[in-house]
Amino acid sequence: MGKNQHVVPHNGEWAVKGAGNTKATSVHGTQQQAIDAARAIAQNQGSELLIHGRDGQIRAKDSHGKDPFPPKG
């Protein structure tokens, strides 16, 4: 499983960062562009996508790995 991908505010733009990385993988003008890029990486690596709001707090998660607790239904 790869590193979780975080979409975070970055100098007025939005960055994609792998968990624990100090440098951004990529920087985008809009949050949606960053989400799209991070989702592609997370799907490829089988990891999680964590989307942060402008305040830095996690506002959404999207799992692309093997969920140990998949929804029943």
Rank of each mutant, 00 (worst) to 15 (best):
D62R: 14
W14R: 00
Q57K: 15
G18F: 09
G56K: 07
Q33D: 06
F69Y: 12
K17E: 05
A24Y: 05
D67V: 08
S47A: 15
G56P: 03
Q32F: 04
N4F: 10
K3P: 04
T22C: 05
I51N: 02
H28P: 02
M1S: 12
Q5N: 05
L49E: 01
I41T: 06
G20A: 04
T22G: 07
H6T: 05
L50N: 06
F69N: 15
H52S: 13
D67F: 08
P70A: 06
T22L: 12
Q32S: 04
V8L: 10
E13W: 04
N11K: 14
Q5P: 01
I35E: 01
G73C: 07
P71Y: 11
I35M: 04
G73R: 13
I35P: 01
N44T: 12
H52D: 08
I41K: 13
E48G: 10
S63E: 11
E48Y: 10
S63F: 10
H28L: 00
P71E: 12
A24T: 02
G2S: 11
H64T: 03
H52A: 15
P68A: 07
R59P: 00
Q5V: 08
I58E: 13
A60D: 12
G56D: 05
G46E: 03
A34S: 04
A40G: 03
H10I: 03
H28E: 02
G53T: 07
V16F: 03
A19W: 11
A34L: 05
G18M: 09
H6I: 08
K17P: 02
Q5C: 13
K17S: 06
K66N: 13
Q43W: 04
A19M: 10
G20N: 06
Q45L: 14
N4T: 14
G20V: 03
N44V: 03
Q5A: 13
G46Y: 12
N44W: 11
N21M: 12
H6M: 12
Q45H: 13
E48R: 09
N21R: 11
I41R: 14
M1A: 13
I41F: 06
Q57M: 12
G2A: 14
A38R: 03
I35N: 01
N21P: 00
V16C: 07
I58P: 05
G53H: 06
G18Q: 07
L50Q: 09
H6V: 06
G53E: 04
N21D: 15
H28V: 01
Q31A: 01
E13M: 14
P68R: 04
N4C: 13
T22I: 11
Q43S: 11
P68K: 05
V7H: 02
A60K: 15
V16D: 00
K3H: 14
S26E: 02
